[in-house]
Computed example of a mutant assay.
Amino acid sequence: MSSAKVKAQQIIDENGVVVFSKSYCPYCKASKNLLNDLGAKYYALELDDIEDGDALQNALQQISGQRTVPNIYIAQKHIGGNSDLQGIKGELPKLLKDAGAL
């Protein structure tokens, strides 16, 4: 297993809510704004700001089948991207609470 895949999986496993993001991405901003509006605690990793960001993005594709950002996990479960997150807005408070993020 690649070191990037190990690192990505470790980040997912150690955090209740993870947003793999890019600093310039409007969909990433929308996802983080929604989580912020709900008062969620989450771990955001800006892939364009770190040296191994491309490798992590490739590893995420192996883990979830999704390479695009945002790539969101709640309670170690792959949620998907921004449209997926926005689509479960009504369930989010309970999911976040169950993940220990509220």
Rank of each mutant, 00 (worst) to 15 (best):
V69P: 02
I12C: 04
Q76K: 15
A44Q: 06
L35D: 05
S21W: 00
I72L: 00
L85A: 05
L35R: 01
D37I: 12
G100I: 10
K5V: 07
N58Q: 11
C25F: 10
Q57H: 04
M1S: 11
S83V: 14
T68H: 07
Q86M: 15
A40W: 04
I50Y: 11
N15A: 11
S2K: 03
Y43H: 13
N58L: 14
Q62D: 13
S64A: 12
A59P: 09
I74L: 06
V69S: 04
C25W: 05
K41S: 15
I74D: 03
D13M: 12
K97P: 10
K29G: 03
P93Y: 01
K41D: 13
V69Q: 08
L85T: 01
Q10K: 14
Y27D: 01
G100P: 08
E46F: 09
N58K: 11
V18P: 06
V17G: 00
A44M: 04
V18K: 05
S2P: 06
G39P: 07
G80K: 02
H78V: 10
A4P: 07
S31Q: 04
V69R: 05
S23N: 06
Y73Q: 05
N33L: 15
P93C: 08
Q9F: 09
P70Y: 00
D54M: 15
I11T: 12
L96N: 04
N71H: 05
D98N: 14
E91T: 14
K7G: 00
L35S: 05
Q10F: 12
Q76V: 07
D84V: 09
D48T: 00
A8L: 09
N33Y: 12
K29C: 11
L92W: 04
A101Q: 02
A44K: 03
I63L: 09
